[in-house]
Design a protein around this nucleic acid. Structure first.
Length: 178
DNA sequence: GCCAACGTTGGC
DNA sequence: GCCAACGTTGGC
């Protein structure tokens, strides 16, 4: 027996993992994802090693994703999505015309990776950053931490669940479905 | 528009 | 390996 999968940093079979991705709505909104072909888009252009590592090494097809609008008024979580593909090299790194081109990346050993992200459903209402910060549980979320600039980050699935439940209540605390 | 926080780059 | 300079992110 010996070392567990967890101790090796691997995932138990069936283990649920959750994530948060950020996008500026003026660049690519959740509505744009809902309108996209197959409600899916390659999450390209990520040029941060930590965020890349999450996509390349840890995300799995079917993982739940919170879609967050950054640089918005107000910023906040607006939708649910899922990881829709295994990781693959981000083609924009080799596209000279792309703002994401990276001439130092070797096609035989690509530096940047992406996964496809598919929209699942919009939240019944936005859960704002302000609300996340004010919530006794959600304020532990990385996205609420000062100075955090990761565009792809892990989220405790318990936090995702709380956030969704919050969205399903009105911002007045009432059941939005009632 | 401002500015704090942070990652990257490059000189040494 | 250190660290100052610089560019970017993102809340406000």
């Amino acid at each position: 027996m010996g070392v567990t999968a967890e101790a090796r940093g691997e995932r138990e079979a069936g283990e649920r993992r959750c994530w948060l991705v950020k996008s500026e709505p003026t660049t690519f909104s959740f509505d744009a994802l809902l309108a996209a072909d197959e409600r899916t888009t390659p999450w390209d252009g990520v040029r941060n090693y930590q965020a890349r590592n999450f996509m390349r090494d840890e995300m799995r097809v079917g993982d739940a994703v919170i879609f967050y609008h950054s640089n918005a008024t107000p910023p906040g979580a607006v939708g649910l999505a899922e990881v829709a593909s295994p990781p693959r090299p981000d083609p924009t790194q080799f596209d000279e015309g792309s703002r994401y081109a990276d001439p130092t990346s070797d096609p035989a050993d690509p530096r940047w990776f992406l996964v496809d992200v598919r929209a699942v459903r919009a939240l019944p209402r936005m859960v704002t950053l302000q609300e996340i910060k004010a919530h006794p549980e959600l304020n532990e979320m990385l996205v609420a931490r000062r100075g955090n600039r990761l565009s792809v980050m892990p989220v405790a699935c318990a936090h995702l669940d709380v956030l969704v439940a919050l969205a399903e209540r009105g911002d007045d605390g009432r059941d939005a479905a009632a």
